[in-house]
Design a protein around this nucleic acid. Structure first.
Lengths: 161, 161
DNA sequence: GCAATAGTTGACTAAATTACTCGGATTTAG
DNA sequence: CTAAATCCGAGTAATTTAGTCAACTATTGC
């Protein structure tokens, strides 16, 4: 489990998709424009999301992407794992078995921490994100005139971590 | 909040330090040898840990690093924040205020997710890691003859995330 | 005082990852 | 056919990671 901007881009894109797939397939060009993510980068991400069976694609005009499962069945962990392929096996993982007490020690430590965080993110479904988003009308206006923008927006939360 | 190998190295090193600081200051050379982290990289990490007041340094022969607080008062989040300086402010963070509904949307989303994970890791103290480690005698033998190694070690957990 | 130990700092670098571009190929609605 | 869209692979600039190197300062033991 790694938490990088890559995974965030993917979750952001998937949330955008979830919020508007009711009207049929959503194009990457649309997500790109709305979320400010480059189209080519989205293509890479959605290639992985598709291979992980999180989205289905419809080619040709009027095509785009739809969710392959319901929003209840897709978790944030699913999305992050799909795009952020596990590069760990840091330290004693893999074939080099722990020849040192402490190497083994940290291996277990991180495995457990990974599991806990993964477990948490597994319980955060796209559905809950969609609901949370729809709940606050202050800032979100969905499916009106396309590309319409209204500037009123609550102050962004301070305190970046 | 980012979870990268950099933060893991730091937590690993801090755990090694916590496990043996009873015998006085612990040298980076020792941590380097035991944990397989390069000395120069540890120097960088401990420079940050020291500036964040997580460790104290003792110079000269017999010197090294000690914890600046008790193990109960140091959390995994403290360590990760110290070395993995927050590079976020992704998307609408910082000065560019949200001119788009959805940009604001994802900003809040990630701020909340960040907060939750940070909150979780704040509750994992070095003390709990030390305890967990001391509990399993199978693989850990601490403070016997220096550099002593015994090969018996439980199978590493499978399933990297 | 002198030498050895050990932290401190800064500049630099190779490798990996991230975030993207480009060019094309394929599919399909109209 | 043609335009709209996904697919696919190669390539690439910027950033981060992980590490090297060298010079320096502080402390201790002798």
């Amino acid at each position: 489990m790694r938490l990088t901007t890559k995974g965030r881009f993917a979750v952001t894109a998937m949330l955008d998709l979830a919020l508007r797939e009711a009207n049929g397939p959503v194009t990457l060009a649309g997500i790109s424009e709305r979320q400010g993510i480059s189209l080519s980068y989205l293509e890479q991400l959605f290639g992985k999301l598709r291979r992980s069976q999180l989205v289905d694609s419809v080619r040709g005009p009027g095509g785009g992407y739809t969710l392959a499962r319901t929003v209840q069945e897709i978790s944030v962990a699913d999305i992050i794992v799909a795009v952020d392929e596990s590069v760990d096996a840091t330290q004693c993982g893999g074939r080099e078995n722990c020849h040192d007490n402490h190497r083994c020690m940290t291996h277990d430590l991180w495995t457990n921490l990974n599991l806990t965080i993964f477990d948490y993110l597994s319980k955060v479904s796209l559905a809950s994100l969609v609901d949370a988003q729809r709940a606050k009308e202050t800032c979100v206006v969905i499916d009106q005139r396309p590309q319409r923008r209204n500037g009123t927006c609550s102050e962004p939360l301070a305190g970046t971590i």
